[in-house]
């Protein structure tokens, strides 16, 4: 008689879970190995004293130009993340709540910064600023927007923002999609104007999503390189941010310093990630 028992089910289930775990785990392992390799490269052959006091990271931190680049990175990433959130909230809400003519087109346009090669974003920004009115001399200021932005600090922020905002928009749209629109409608019946219902009901509900969008935009801005190189340049003590530092150190053959700065970036990104995770989790617990 044909065996129709199900005793082999247990085996196939464990094989299934094992293969899922192995396939998934290999990627997690790759991520961890990347970080471990950086650290291992830095500490190889050094004594404990050297590791603590003379490692390339400490040496890198001692250089004024690298301290400048850390400071500029922190400030520019924070500003571009704030700007990203500022545009992502209204766009995300409008896209999530309303079906209007041209909505699909708008949706596609918002993906352009994500799919466009970063260098092209930078080049396009550079070209945009060659056109009037951006080249027109502003009254009272004595300079044009072009002179004020291109190859200057504002270019760093604008280049970071141009790409980071697209990620923030995606996150905010998903956030608003998850919030029950009925809540806003109920607020309207309770006497709210559209603006009141948005500010008092929708935005507080979107708090966690806003935090995620901010973090994502911040991390994205930190890693931005291509557009910066073209649009803001890589001038030491002027438009140099951490990603540019890695490039500059590599270009003069100082691999140790490049790795050290990379690790500083890793710490910065992981810290932001952890802070927002902990903050977000606390928000849920309340």
């Amino acid at each position: 008689m044909k065996d129709i028992s199900t005793k082999r089910v247990g085996l196939t289930d464990s094989v299934f879970f094992l293969s899922m775990g192995i396939i998934g785990g290999s990627y997690v392992l790759l991520i961890l190995l990347l970080l471990v390799a950086d650290i291992a490269y830095m500490v190889q052959g050094a004594s404990w004293g050297e590791v603590v006091f003379e490692n390339p990271m400490v040496l890198a931190l001692a250089k004024p130009e690298i301290r400048y680049s850390i400071m500029l990175s922190l400030i520019s990433c924070t500003l571009s993340a704030i700007l990203s959130l500022l545009v992502a909230v209204p766009i995300g809400w409008l896209l999530s709540r309303f079906r209007f003519r041209g909505r699909n087109l708008l949706d596609a346009i918002l993906d352009i910064p994500i799919v466009l090669p970063p260098l092209v974003v930078g080049l396009s920004l550079l070209i945009l600023f060659q056109f009037w009115p951006l080249t027109a001399r502003l009254p009272f200021v004595g300079m044009s927007l072009n002179e004020f932005v291109v190859y200057q600090i504002p270019a760093v922020i604008l280049a970071q923002f141009a790409v980071a905002a697209a990620f923030a928009v995606r996150t905010m749209k998903a956030t608003f999609d998850e919030i029950n629109p009925r809540c806003e409608q109920v607020a309207l019946t309770l006497g709210c104007s559209r603006m009141q219902s948005f500010m008092r009901v929708t935005l507080p509900e979107a708090g966690r999503g806003m935090l995620t969008a901010f973090t994502l935009a911040w991390a994205r801005a930190l890693g931005e390189f291509g557009p910066l190189l073209i649009f803001a340049g890589a001038t030491r003590n002027k438009t140099e941010v951490l990603s540019t530092t890695v490039y500059l150190e590599l270009s003069i053959g100082d691999l140790e310093a490049a790795v050290a700065v990379s690790l500083i970036m890793v710490f910065a990104a992981v810290s932001v990630l952890l802070i927002t995770r902990v903050w977000g989790a606390r928000d849920v617990m309340v």
Partner: peptide, 10 residues
């Protein structure tokens, strides 16, 4: 409304 639609942060 049917599901109550309570405000989760309040």
């Amino acid at each position: 409304p049917q599901d109550g639609a309570l405000f989760s942060t309040m």
